[in-house]
């Protein structure tokens, strides 16, 4: 029951995932609008999906090879191709059967450089899909995140609290100040526009929400609301159910990095509550990173 009889060229990648819904969740998290293009990079370590918008916002989804039950990588040069993220998500959705774990096989390339998807749970009933890929534009990514100084500026907040805070900041307006204060250790999100709204996370008072904090001098950086919102708007419900945390770091030039963890494995009924990030089966978790450029690139740090 192996592949066809003729000794054809082996595809560059054949991989299998146990639970397609986990992948749908992870991909949806980096989908902030209906029509969006993504670039996929395949390597011996796994798959990276990159989405970006107008030079201000970039998202990366890392699917390590450990997430797959099978990962056969045979390429000499790392393949890189573009596709429509919306179509990819809608298509994977068709594979997902409610309350049923559907294993899926992903193969690249097909005879016409397509991405091929196939359900593999039953011989007598199967779902197949072909998604047309394209050659990605060779634009330079300039989202190299570098630390702002010797000490990192970073904090970890419960993902649900972060999402809620960002949603609450919608009404005042277009720009959000993210302020880190070392004494007393706190994080402030402030919106100014039609009105003012400020949300404070105090490290000592809200240690259940602000789980980690590192900052040695005051920093205040301004970001566009719509980009900040994109980092949490489609956060999968599993992230909130599993009580995960999100890590935010401010780097050189005020670049904001937001990191989430999304569970790819089928949720276990007995293990649905997790205490802190990465606690449950770290190998079954996909990493998501958003990079948001500050609104005014020079006016980044200092008080």
């Amino acid at each position: 029951m192996s592949a066809s009889g003729t000794e054809e060229e082996r595809p560059e990648l054949v991989c299998q995932l146990e639970h397609v819904q986990g992948l749908v969740d992870a991909l949806s998290a980096v989908r902030w609008k209906r029509h969006q293009d993504a670039v996929l990079e395949l390597s011996e370590h796994g798959i990276v999906l990159v989405v970006q918008e107008s030079g201000c916002l970039q998202a990366k989804l890392y699917l390590k090879r450990e997430l797959f039950v099978r990962y056969d990588y045979n390429a000499q040069v790392r393949p890189r191709f573009g596709l429509s993220l919306g179509i990819f998500v809608e298509c994977l959705n068709a594979f997902s059967v409610p309350a049923h774990s559907t294993p899926i096989q992903i193969q690249y390339p097909g005879p016409d450089m397509q991405l091929l998807l196939k359900s593999v749970d039953s011989m007598d009933a199967s779902i197949c899909a072909e998604i047309r890929t394209r050659i990605p534009e060779t634009i330079a990514w300039d989202y190299n995140f570098e630390p702002a100084g010797t000490n990192p500026l970073t904090f970890t907040v419960k993902s649900a609290a972060l999402k809620e805070a960002i949603e609450d900041l919608e009404w005042p307006g277009s720009s959000i100040h993210v302020i880190l204060e070392p004494d007393p250790p706190s994080v402030t999100l402030r919106a100014e526009g039609h009105g003012d709204l400020q949300i404070d996370f105090l490290y000592y008072a809200n240690s259940d929400l602000l789980v980690a904090f590192q900052c040695d001098h005051r920093v205040s950086v301004k970001y566009k609301y719509k980009f900040l919102k994109a980092t949490t708007s489609n956060m999968p419900s599993s992230v909130i159910k599993e009580n995960r945390g999100s890590k935010l770091s401010i780097g050189r030039g005020g670049m904001l990095k937001v990191q989430h963890l999304v569970s790819i494995a089928k949720p276990l009924a007995s293990h649905s509550y997790v205490d802190s990030i990465g606690y449950q089966q770290p190998s079954r978790v996909a990493h998501i990173e958003f990079f948001v450029k500050p609104e005014e690139s020079d006016d980044s740090t200092n008080d």
């Binding site: 596709l83 429509s84 179509i87 298509c91 068709a94 011989m123 007598d124 009933a125 199967s126 779902i127 197949c128 899909a129 072909e130 998604i131 047309r132």
Partner: peptide, 12 residues
């Protein structure tokens, strides 16, 4: 469609 084809096959 232009960018995608998706199908289900049932046998036997």
């Amino acid at each position: 469609a232009t960018l995608i084809s998706l199908g289900a096959e049932f046998r036997k």
